[in-house]
Simulated scan of single mutants.
Amino acid sequence: MNSRFVGIPELLEVPSVAVVIDVMRAFTVAAWAFAQGAEKIVLAESLDDALALKAGHPDWVALKDGPPAPGFDAVNSPGMLRSMDLGGRTVVQKTTAGTVGALAVKDASLVLCASFVVAEATARVLRARESDNVTFVVTGEDGRADEDLACAQYIARRAAETETETETETEARAGAGTDAAAFLRRAADSRAATELAEGVRQGVHPDDVALCLELDRFGFAMVAALEGPLMVLRRVNVVPGAHQSG
């Protein structure tokens, strides 16, 4: 599998297969939304679009980056979202980087949205697809966010391994050393992690960084596709026996 890693501004053509990475925090939050029972997540183009969708569907749950705001039900924080009951609900999500990256590749034949919490499931989808070329969209900091790049590189590495190698290393991860350790350290040392921990960013729960660094918390991948005019994210269960809910 040939992997390339690009920022959103570098997306000059539509990739065949795209994996959009936002560790801190869009696609960690999206995974938690599914874990809390959400049926689907609509990725909004703008805050105004998110509010319009919410106005047209009052039972939908709208969330955004930053502090709470009128019209929105939640903020882009896994620590806060994990206490919400989203059973059967539709979530509308608008963030600074993650949703922008997913919408930028909406015409790709396969779009996966990912973070560390769904890394193995995402890698398994890529292995099953047997794609020759995969574009990883590193959404943060115009492609320079090390937490997103580390996650992208980790998933690419896992996806390129054979099933036998994967089974062996999965067993190894249950023991002392972990193949993901160096990648997780990079994410923990990233600018985004520091800003979250120090309260530079708003709408933050004290557990957000730790929750974003949980490897393979969930056994599902997240696939985005156009459904009519909307880009919709849905969960796809992949890893049998893995933790599926909050």
Rank of each mutant, 00 (worst) to 15 (best):
A69I: 02
V117K: 07
G177H: 13
F5W: 01
F183W: 07
T28H: 05
S83R: 05
E167T: 12
A181M: 08
I41R: 05
L53I: 14
R185M: 07
V61N: 10
M1Q: 05
L184E: 02
D208N: 05
A224Y: 08
M84N: 10
G199C: 11
D48W: 02
F34S: 10
G203M: 01
T96P: 00
I21R: 10
C113V: 14
A119H: 13
V137Y: 10
L63A: 11
N76I: 00
R217C: 00
A225C: 00
R124H: 11
V118I: 13
A69Y: 01
V223Q: 11
P240D: 01
A128Q: 10
L103N: 15
W32V: 14
A187T: 01
A30I: 12
V92I: 15
D142I: 03
A193E: 09
A114G: 13
E198A: 13
M24H: 02
M1S: 13
E147K: 04
A33F: 03
V236D: 04
R186Q: 10
E120S: 15
E163G: 08
F218E: 06
P68L: 05
V75R: 14
F72M: 06
D189Q: 15
Q93S: 13
P9C: 12
C151M: 09
E227V: 14
A145L: 11
R201A: 06
V75P: 03
L226G: 10
V6C: 08
D59F: 04
T99R: 04
A108V: 04
S245P: 05
D207G: 03
A156T: 12
A31D: 07
A176E: 08
S131I: 08
V236H: 08
D148K: 03
A181E: 09
L230A: 14
I8C: 07
A114K: 11
K54T: 11
D148V: 11
R127P: 09
D65N: 06
D107Y: 03
V118M: 06
V61P: 11
S16A: 13
K54P: 04
D65I: 00
D132N: 08
D208P: 08
I41H: 11
V29S: 05
E167D: 15
R201T: 06
L196Q: 08
T135Y: 00
L43E: 07
A114T: 13
R4T: 09
A119Y: 02
E147L: 10
M24K: 09
A160Q: 15
S245G: 14
S131V: 09
V29K: 02
A152L: 09
M24W: 04
D65Y: 03
E10S: 14
E161F: 10
D146W: 01
